[in-house]
Every structure is written in structure tokens, then in C-alpha cells.
Write a protein that binds this DNA or RNA. Structure first.
Lengths: 231, 231
DNA sequence: CAGCCGCGAGTTGCATACAGTTTGGGACGG
DNA sequence: CCGTCCCAAACTGTATGCAACTCGCGGCTG
């Protein structure tokens, strides 16, 4: 009963987001409210709310009275965003290593189990796996932020982590990337159990910087080497 | 043309936010959409949008079908928020020391002139001075964030710096606090001119930690010493 | 007397009608 | 032939009516 229990606004949010991720909506595409409403069989109200949410998460940008456009993530200063993310997530994980309760560490460990099992079962590009991985990352790192400083920290993290970048990262995973990412998560939990902020932060920095490198390499392929030099 | 050009949703956002910061809406107050709509002479639609925005910024919390409540800022972990702010603003100022153009440094310097002049002219508790100081702080630190990484960084800063906390800080300024704050701003600009990230960051950290201390002392007065120990 | 069931009040969530604004094209004038 | 002005279409922004859901209170039953 997912569809009946879920709010229409949430459904609209998920569907639009999925279409952006799948590339069905290219960067620069124009999103009209009426257009979207008809496309997903809803009225404009929930679509409007979904667009506002996507806007605050940085997936789309809204022009006054001229509709919304899908953000072209390639134009963002990816290096800067990831450097900021490293600083912030490093700070969070340092605190969480002290404050996160054992029960929550166990819960995250259980989530790791699930992800690793599905990773082994599903094919590399399976949409279900991509979705699961993205969702797990949100949950894992969000939980760390929450343990470090409550809902406000989680909200701050949400504004630092731009959606398209995460999706692109997950989408371009190789098997090796997947396994390294999973190992990072495991090691962070190990550092939590040892209550070692320094250890936890070191792993987290490796985790973020590896993602940054992967993303920059991906951009190099898409745009050509010249553009990378420019930055 | 401010009010006619501005969207009703933005007006609702500003007004509700102002009423929260001014203490007109106490922490824990119940906010009904219809209630707010009548209060500000608007319909429910823009109010609804404003509430969603305030929720995503952490100023209010929404219950499923029972309306929204103002978050009690005194219950927030102020120390944690300011520690995070120190990390983030330190990162910003480090980068801005390299990237901020001379023209922008000059502009901020001019703003400092104005603030210092008005500080000398007006009485300590003059609402105009409090307003001016709060606005100047937003502009000064916002400009640093923008120089460090564009609009995205400015948005992140906005989510870290909770409105009520800043206003409370400014409201409780003593003459000495004012002058120290102004000297900090001047010294940051001096570090920018010298293009020294380390110098700039050191001053910024002093700036943030002094504000944190002031706020914690203020809370001690409001809640009594016992509550401070509890944290 | 205690616990459960059901109904009513009140609130949010959704759909739709209406108004204001922007933009682009076409016609007219130079 | 080109530039300018105006109008209409399309869109967002706003208001309001209606439906769905939650919670609390009162009465009924064991």
C-alpha cells in the first residue's frame, strides 16, 4: 500500500527525481507545472511542492515566472563542493564517534549487510541497486549527522550534498568503487565502536575525496581535458 | 515597490520568520495554516509554502496532521551549532582570502565604515542599530561565502546560521562586544588584502567563538546555571 | 468502574478556478 | 526592409472549495 499511504507530493518528488536521475530529463530541460502534472496524473499543487523541494536540494533551478530547469551539474564547481563536504562530514563523524549510541551503530551495520548482499546479487547497472545505494548513502551519512547534532545538522548536510552529484557518482560506480565504498562504511562503524574520532574522520575524508576524484574523472571524460584545466 | 514586486509567499516567510525572531511567536507555539493566513491577510497557499521553507531550515517542526510548532531555540545545542559554524566559516574565509577580488574587499570595507559610524552615533539598544548590525553581518559573511564558492556556499551558510541565534547575539551586544566584532571584521579584510588564508581563518575562529561564548553566557542567565551543566 | 468503540470537530492535503506577469510574434509605420 | 509597439498565449502565483485523515470526547459495554 505504498501508493495510497504516500502523499501525492512525495510521489511527485520521487518520480521527477527518478526521471532526472535516469537522464530522461536532461540538464537544461524545462519543467512546466501543468506539463508535469499531466505527465504524472496529478494536479499542479503536489507537483509545485515537489519542484520547490527539488529546488531547495539544488537539483533544479527556478526562474521567476518562467518555470524551472534541470540544473546542469557539469557547470558546478565540483571540487569546491566536495572540499566543503569533506570539512563538514569530517566534523560530523568526529562528533558522532563519541555520541552515536551502540544501538544505532548496530542498525547501520545491518543496513550495510543488506546493501552488500544486494550488491552481490544484482547487476552493476540495475536501477534497483542504484536506487538502493543512493538511499543507503542518504540514510548512513544522515544518521551520522543526526547523531552529531540532531535534525539541524542533518538539514545542513542536505544543503551541502547536491543531489545530482551523488546520483552521478552512484551511477558511474564500478565494482571496485562499490566495494571500496562499502569497506569505508564498515570501517567508519569500526571506528565508532572503538570510539575513535580521529580514525573515523580519516576514513570519512578518504571516502569523500575518493568520490570527488571519481566525479572529476567522469567530468573529464564528458567535457574533454581542456575544461578541467580551466578550473 | 518592495511589497508589490515581492511574492506573497516570500512575504509570509519573512513575516513569520520575523515574528519568531522577535519572540512574538514563542517556542512551542502552534502554527495553523488557516490561523497564519488570517493573521497576515493572505490565503493558505503562500503560508503553506512559507511553512515548508521554515521547516526545511529547522526553525519549525511539522507534525503529520496536527500543524507545526516553533522550535524552542533554547533547547538547541548551541555549542554544537557554533562549533559547526566555526568549521564552515573557517573553510569559507580560507578560500575567500585567495579568491575575493580587491573591489569586493573595498566594498566590504566601505560597509564597515558605515556600521562603525552608526555604532558611534546611535544608542546601544536602538532598534535601528540592531537591525543594521544584523543586516551587515549577513552581508559581510554572505559575501565571504559567495567569494569562496558561489551561491551554493551562501545557501549552505544560511542553513548553518540559525536566525534567532544571530538576532539574540546582536541584541545582547555590549559596547565592548560591538567594538570587538567591528575590529574582527576589519582584521579579516586586512588578512584578505595580505592574501593570507591562515591569518584570515584565525581571526574568523576568534570571531565565531567569541559569539558562541556570549550566547552561552546569555543562556545561563535565562535558564539558570543548572541547565548549562545538564548539557 | 475501566476499557473500548464511534462520532464530531478541526486540521492538513489535493484539485481547480482565477488573476497577474512575462514573452514572443505579428502588424504597422518609418 | 528594418525597427518598434502591441496583443495574445502560456505560464506561474494565488485563492478557495472539497476530501481525507487524526485526535479527543462521550457513551456504551463487559
Amino acid at each position: 500500500m505504498t501508493s495510497s499511504n504516500e502523499r501525492a507530493a512525495d510521489r511527485a518528488y520521487r518520480m521527477i527525481r527518478a526521471d532526472i536521475m535516469s537522464g530522461d530529463l536532461e540538464g537544461g530541460s524545462r519543467l512546466g507545472e501543468a506539463n508535469m502534472a499531466e505527465r504524472y496524473g496529478l494536479s499542479r499543487t503536489p507537483v509545485r511542492e515537489a519542484l520547490r523541494r527539488l529546488q531547495s536540494e539544488g537539483l533544479i533551478e527556478a526562474l521567476p515566472h518562467r518555470g524551472a530547469r534541470v540544473v546542469d551539474w557539469r557547470s558546478l564547481d565540483i571540487a569546491a563542493i566536495y572540499d566543503l563536504r569533506a570539512v563538514v562530514e569530517g566534523f560530523f563523524v568526529r562528533r558522532a564517534a563519541i555520541t552515536m549510541p551502540d544501538s544505532e551503530i548496530d542498525r547501520l551495520s545491518g543496513l550495510c549487510d543488506t546493501v552488500e548482499r544486494r550488491t552481490a546479487e544484482l547487476s552493476l547497472r540495475d536501477p534497483e541497486l542504484i536506487d538502493l545505494t543512493a538511499e543507503f548513502n542518504r540514510e548512513f551519512h544522515g544518521s551520522i549527522a543526526r547523531a552529531a547534532g540532531g535534525e539541524i545538522f542533518a538539514a545542513v548536510r542536505g544543503s551541502v550534498v547536491i543531489g545530482p552529484l551523488v546520483l552521478r557518482t552512484v551511477h558511474d560506480y564500478t565494482r571496485e568503487d562499490q566495494q571500496r565504498s562499502n569497506r569505508h562504511h564498515r570501517e567508519i562503524l569500526a571506528a565508532f565502536r572503538a570510539r575513535s574520532p580521529e580514525w573515523a574522520e580519516s576514513v570519512m575524508l578518504a571516502h569523500v575525496y575518493s568520490a570527488k576524484t571519481r566525479l572529476l574523472e567522469g567530468r573529464e571524460q564528458l567535457l574533454g581535458p581542456a575544461s578541467v584545466e580551466a578550473s
